[in-house]
Computed example of a mutant assay.
Amino acid sequence: MATKCAICGKGAVVGMQLSHSHIRTKRAWKPNLQRVKALVNGTPRRIMVCTRCLRSGRVQRAI
């Protein structure tokens, strides 16, 4: 399944998790992606979209 938003391209960001004893381990911050039925070039398709794009109205939902 895609880990990028089909509208804005937002994807996972990698960084370090830092414990109290300063042990560093790699971790990832993933965007809140939802599988929605949206109109793409006039045809309804299922795409992965982040909730920021859904909330701001960048996606035209299909019925």
Results as ranks from 00 to 15, higher is better:
R35D: 09
R61I: 15
R61N: 10
M48R: 14
K10G: 01
T25G: 11
R35V: 10
Q17F: 01
V59E: 02
M1F: 06
M48E: 14
G57R: 14
G11N: 02
K10H: 01
L54C: 13
A62G: 14
G11R: 00
K26W: 11
N41E: 11
R46T: 01
V36R: 03
M1Q: 04
A2D: 06
I63V: 15
N32C: 10
S56G: 09
A12D: 06
R45T: 02
T51N: 08
G11D: 02
A2N: 08
K26I: 15
C8M: 05
H20W: 12
T3F: 08
T3M: 08
A28M: 12
K4C: 01
Q17I: 07
V49S: 08
A6V: 04
T25E: 15
R52A: 15
I23L: 13
G42F: 09
V13H: 02
K37L: 06
V14L: 11
C8R: 00
C5L: 03
K37S: 06
P31M: 07
P44I: 09
V13D: 04
R24V: 07
R52L: 12
R27D: 06
H22N: 08
P44C: 12
K4W: 01
C53I: 04
H22L: 05
C8Q: 01
I47K: 12
A2E: 08
T43W: 09
C53G: 05
T51H: 05
G9N: 00
A62M: 13
G15Y: 00
L39N: 04
M16V: 15
G57F: 13
L39S: 07
A28D: 10
R35Y: 06
M1W: 05
L33C: 04
G42I: 05
L18K: 05
T3P: 00
C8D: 01
T51V: 11
L54G: 12
C53A: 09
R46G: 00
V13N: 03
A28N: 08
L54K: 10
L39C: 05
Q17E: 07
V59A: 12
T43C: 10
Q17G: 04
Q34L: 12
V40G: 08
